[in-house]
């Protein structure tokens, strides 16, 4: 566990040394604040629209941070040849994968906390209400969703040759799931058998990242918090897919030749 946490620590340090997070945070803050200064149609519900924009930017920024941070971990180690001294120490390849995942997940969590604190302060100053429980649930579900994304990208980084290729493919896969996966069951019902059963099975096999999108929970005050049992089930669901991708990644990585091509 010490080895894994040491590897994770290096990844977290890398996040605050790089400029990605700062740029995305400043961009989100500037865009949200500039939108907040404008009063459209004297609409009293403008705060909800502002929150929606801010959360969309947070979702995009967190996805970009998770994708780029996870995608460059193993390819960068191979290109810089630092993977050889790393594996020469009493560190297994499984620990490398686990350490990289933990580091990326914690780093993204830190970034997400900063984003949500900004969001909470902004909406709290406008609405004078602090639904902390809803913020915590929205944060947790998004963070858990990002764990699946990070595990998927780490799996991609041992399968694909370059980091850019991995980022592009994973980006489209994640975007496809977020935007289209929810429609698959509807499409499946319109198909004849056996395509219906196959498509419906595929619908339940893919990791549904869009289920973790509970932005409406914090945007509109009408929704009650998500039941804790559902939160636990969602966490378990994400944990299963994280384990699946990390295990598959380890299976590929343990037999992979690390000599530079």
């Amino acid at each position: 566990m010490n080895t894994v946490s040491a590897l994770a620590g290096v990844v977290i340090k890398e996040l605050y040394r790089r400029k990605d997070f700062y740029v995305l945070f400043v961009l989100t803050a500037v865009l949200t604040l500039s939108m907040g200064m404008i009063n459209f149609f004297n609409d009293p519900k403008i705060v909800e629209d502002l929150k929606e924009i801010c959360l969309l930017l947070i979702w995009i920024s967190a996805l970009v941070i998770a994708l780029t941070t996870a995608a460059r971990q193993i390819p960068a180690e191979r290109e810089n040849r630092t993977v050889f001294p790393l594996l020469a120490k009493p560190v297994t390849r499984g620990q490398v994968i686990l350490g990289k995942f933990l580091g990326c997940w914690l780093a993204v969590g830190v970034a997400l906390v900063v984003f949500y604190v900004f969001f909470g302060v902004l909406s709290g100053s406008r609405e004078h209400a602090w639904p902390v429980l809803k913020y915590v649930q929205a944060f947790w579900l998004q963070w858990v969703m990002l764990a699946v994304v990070i595990a998927l990208v780490l799996f991609g980084s041992v399968v694909f040759t370059s980091a850019a290729e991995n980022v592009t493919i994973c980006f489209f896969v994640v975007l496809g799931i977020l935007l289209l996966a929810g429609h698959l069951n509807t499409v499946a019902l319109q198909q004849p058998e056996p395509a219906r059963t196959l498509l419906y099975s595929f619908y339940f096999v893919i990791p549904h990242l869009e289920w973790f999108d509970v932005r409406d929970l914090v945007i509109y005050n009408t929704w009650a918090p998500v039941p804790w049992v559902d939160c636990l089930l969602a966490t378990l669901y994400a944990a299963v897919y994280v384990t699946l991708f990390l295990f598959a990644g380890w299976l590929v990585f343990r037999r992979k030749s690390l000599t530079a091509s």
Partner: peptide, 11 residues
């Protein structure tokens, strides 16, 4: 994952 998905989806 499949089983949890079928449980979670209606919720």
């Amino acid at each position: 994952g499949f089983t949890l998905g079928t449980t979670l989806q209606p919720r």
